[in-house]
C-alpha cells in the first residue's frame, strides 16, 4: 500500500443554514487503502462521502485531492466515483447504465463492451445487459450501480452503505468483490457502514463518526475475505 494521501481533509465544516452537519479538523485518506466510515444514522457519513467526491462543497475548510483543491478538479471527477446508498439507475437498459461513464470518457466501443460484460459478470449479473434498469430489485440495483462504478476502473471508489439495500446473497457478493478489490490493491476505497464489525473486517482503517464529528480512527483487520463462509475451513467437530 502506498502511504501518501490521495485525499486530505483540513478544517472541514459543512452546515445547512445555521445547523452544523459535519466538522472534521483533519483526515487523510491514503492512496490504496480501504477506509471505513463508521457511525450511526445522521453521523455525517453520507455528507462526508459526497464532499470527498465534490458532489457538494464544504461550508468551510478544504479538501485536497493529491495536494490540489478537490473542488472542480477534473482529475478527481474522472478518477473517482461515488455510489449512493440507494442508487439511482438511469432510464434504459442495464447496459446503458454500466456503459454511461465509459461513454463520457470516450472509451472505444469494443472496450466498453468488454468492461461492461466483465463488471456485470463480476457481480453475478451476466444475463442482465438488456434488462430494463427501472424494473429491478433493490439488491440487483445495488449490484448494477457497483458494476457501473467498477467498469470505470476508478482509482478512488466511494461507497455509501454498499450492502444496506441488499438481500443476503447480493450483500455477500458485494462483500466478496470489495474484499477482493481491497486485497488486490490499486484502488482506494472509502465506504460507510453502520455495521462496525463488517467495516473493520474489510477496512485497513475505520474512522468513527458521531454527530458530525470524527471521534477516533482504529486500524481495521481486513480479514473479511479470509472469513467468508465459502472459504472457511471445516469445523473439526
Amino acid at each position: 500500500m502506498r502511504s501518501e494521501a490521495i485525499l486530505s481533509v483540513r478544517d472541514l465544516g459543512f452546515s445547512y443554514g445555521t445547523r452544523e452537519i459535519l466538522s472534521i479538523p483533519e483526515l487523510d485518506v491514503r492512496a490504496g487503502e480501504t477506509l471505513a466510515l463508521v457511525g450511526p444514522n445522521g453521523s455525517g457519513k453520507t455528507t462526508l462521502l459526497k464532499l470527498l467526491n465534490d458532489l457538494i462543497r464544504p461550508s468551510s475548510g478544504s479538501i485536497l485531492f493529491e495536494g490540489r483543491p478537490a473542488a472542480g478538479d477534473p482529475g478527481l471527477r474522472l478518477r473517482s466515483v461515488y455510489v449512493h446508498q440507494s442508487p439511482f439507475l438511469l432510464a434504459g437498459t442495464v447496459y446503458r447504465n454500466v456503459a454511461y461513464g465509459l461513454r463520457v470518457r470516450r472509451v472505444p466501443e469494443p472496450e466498453i463492451r468488454r468492461r461492461v460484460e466483465a463488471s456485470l459478470d463480476l457481480l453475478g449479473l451476466a444475463g442482465f445487459k438488456r434488462r430494463d434498469a427501472k424494473r429491478l430489485s433493490g439488491g440487483e440495483t445495488q449490484r448494477i450501480a457497483l458494476a457501473r462504478a467498477l467498469a470505470l476502473e476508478p482509482e478512488l471508489l466511494l461507497l455509501d452503505e454498499p450492502t444496506a439495500q441488499t438481500d443476503r446473497a447480493s450483500g455477500e457478493r458485494i462483500r466478496t468483490v470489495l474484499a477482493d478489490l481491497a486485497t488486490r490493491g490499486g484502488t482506494t476505497i472509502v465506504f460507510s457502514s453502520h455495521d462496525a464489525a463488517f467495516a473493520e473486517a474489510l477496512a485497513d482503517r475505520a474512522a468513527f463518526l458521531e454527530e458530525g464529528r470524527l471521534v477516533r480512527i482504529e486500524p481495521g483487520r481486513r480479514r473479511y475475505a479470509a472469513d467468508l463462509p465459502s472459504q472457511a475451513p471445516e469445523s473439526p467437530v
Binding site: 467526491n53 458532489l55 471527477r77 474522472l78 449512493h84 442508487p87 439511482f88 438511469l90 461513464g101 463520457v104
Partner: peptide, 14 residues
C-alpha cells in the same frame, strides 16, 4: 430525483 443529477456528475458527465 436529486440522486439523478448526482449520478450523472459522479459518472463524469459534463
Amino acid at each position: 430525483d436529486a440522486r439523478f443529477t448526482e449520478t450523472l456528475v459522479t459518472l463524469g458527465a459534463g
